[in-house]
Write a protein that binds this DNA or RNA. Sequence first.
DNA 1: TTGAAAGCGCTACCAT
DNA 2: ATGGTAGCGCTTTCAA
Lengths: 348, 348
Amino acid sequence: MKPTLQDVANAVGVSRSTVSNAYSRPDQLSAALRAKILDAARRLGYPGPDPTARSLRRGFVGAIGVLFTSELSYAFTDPFAVRFLAGVGEVAERHGASLLLVPLPRERDRARAAVDNAAVDGFCVYCVGDEEHVLGAIRDRGLPLVTTAPEAAAPADRFVGIDERAAARSVAAHVAGLGHRRVALLGDTVLPDAPPGPLRLAGPGDAPRPTTHGRLAGFADAFAAAGVPWPAITVVNAAGNSRAAAAAAIAPVLAGDDPPTAVLACSDVLALGVLDAAGPHPGLSVTGFDDIAEAAAAGLTTVRQPAEEKGRLAAALLLEPPADPADGHLLLPTDLVVRTSTGPVPRS
Amino acid sequence: MKPTLQDVANAVGVSRSTVSNAYSRPDQLSAALRAKILDAARRLGYPGPDPTARSLRRGFVGAIGVLFTSELSYAFTDPFAVRFLAGVGEVAERHGASLLLVPLPRERDRARAAVDNAAVDGFCVYCVGDEEHVLGAIRDRGLPLVTTAPEAAAPADRFVGIDERAAARSVAAHVAGLGHRRVALLGDTVLPDAPPGPLRLAGPGDAPRPTTHGRLAGFADAFAAAGVPWPAITVVNAAGNSRAAAAAAIAPVLAGDDPPTAVLACSDVLALGVLDAAGPHPGLSVTGFDDIAEAAAAGLTTVRQPAEEKGRLAAALLLEPPADPADGHLLLPTDLVVRTSTGPVPRS
DNA sequence: TTGAAAGCGCTACCAT
DNA sequence: ATGGTAGCGCTTTCAA
């Protein structure tokens, strides 16, 4: 059996309290006794207080949960998510807090159970869409919570994000300003179980994922202002946020008659996929969203949002809660980054 | 106060055991009673058994620790490390296990404390070098452990990795075969506190990091076989595994008189940095290590090792321990990937 | 400066 | 099918 604190106490001939103090409150006993205790512990192979028991007694854990409302293994595949995580890690590191990455099963009740079983002091939720049940589970546990989707945040929640709609509007306005009128909008899982390819949508609001919804709405705003009504815009669904999925989804649209002169994607990864597929369509304008590292190399026009900073602030909101709850909702700035993937409408 | 299991028991008028069973062993009570209990729990706002208390009682946690023997925030910056993590996550996901990412402070005793305080059932250690004290702490806790560095593995440890030396030998042989004789080897933190730039090393063994050591030794093997003795080889130190650090470290070497005709880097990230710095030196052959995604786009000749698979196997070794301990040491295959960044020695 | 007592919230065994 | 009992290993008053 592993030795316990009690064993050390017995060996030294002191009480458990004293051994406990030797570890957690060195000022509560003489240096000599402490040394003696630590020494005995070493001899017995006692590795120090059991983290679980300590957490139970103390009532807190020293770890924050990070939830991606998508496959965990997928999250590592998404450059933006990884940078967000890096930011979270940076702040956690500073606080000596660990990060518990909790895989979320797709089924709601199992997802809820996963949340219920996580030994953490609070959660950062990287929202992809379809997170309400997860957030509900966290709130039910009475744990603090920060989300990245404003629509998802309850008044008591903390939030850090961007104005998705305004940001999307800014790229779209740039594209509209270049004269594009025949455009396609590309999103990941625009409708839950839709097949890849073009889609009928009564309006941006039909997209259940708040992020997608916000971005589509922003795109629509700008084109509406340029005289292009929603029905004239093609919405294209990709089955996943990957280059391959994007390429597969957009190919038939580009190959159709009356193809768009510009494609506005809801993420850089998707935009890169469009570029992959657009090889034979030079002159096509393409925009992304996020400004991941690959975007620059590809010359992608996009909207930059501060990825690491978003993560840092999310963690900080959890680990250094603002005194005034009103400071718990942070809106980050975004920048339109114009590169070479957008240009005037080609005359043909 | 948050309600406890006891409160639910009182409310329903049953014992704690029964409530516990309602959650953890549904087959131990009638469906009707169970429904009644769960219902009361919902009404009271009882979120289910406390994870910490449950772990204490059950003696296991349902989480595995992942340790990077470097800054945690740095790990997310390293494409190879991220892919490793993706692999770990994939398997953890399948087992319903969470991943606890533990930031390691630089100071040894604080690092040990971080390990001691982690509530996990075992550790995957992604070895960068200088991990002995960390591994010792894990062993002292009696927790199972898988490393990625064979040198670091004690007999009881599990291990998954590659034959660093042989892999390095394969790229170096390719370069030597192209006729290169004036070569530089580039590594991250070849010596602990060395400044960026060329370095004197009595031999590969002087590099304390086992991975660096192994790769340098492999490079040396191949050149020795080609008639280039160790002292004729320039070893260059980069202050970090980043493109910028690599570029800064290699620049003076390329600018010196008698510059190398080939640079062999210990990682793709470093190699990419060399390429950045080599703009004005066309004809320079450069090799990397790992075959990250960016390598292909850059035309980098490198050694591929299966990143996600390494992570998957590491997690599997922990979560599905092999019956025969002898199966706990896995050596993964590597492949030489020749692209355009290497070529014959330019005649000048 | 040290120790005794009282749980933290839960589960597993053994009865009934 | 349900309940009683006995801790899991630790920390924290409080008293000595």
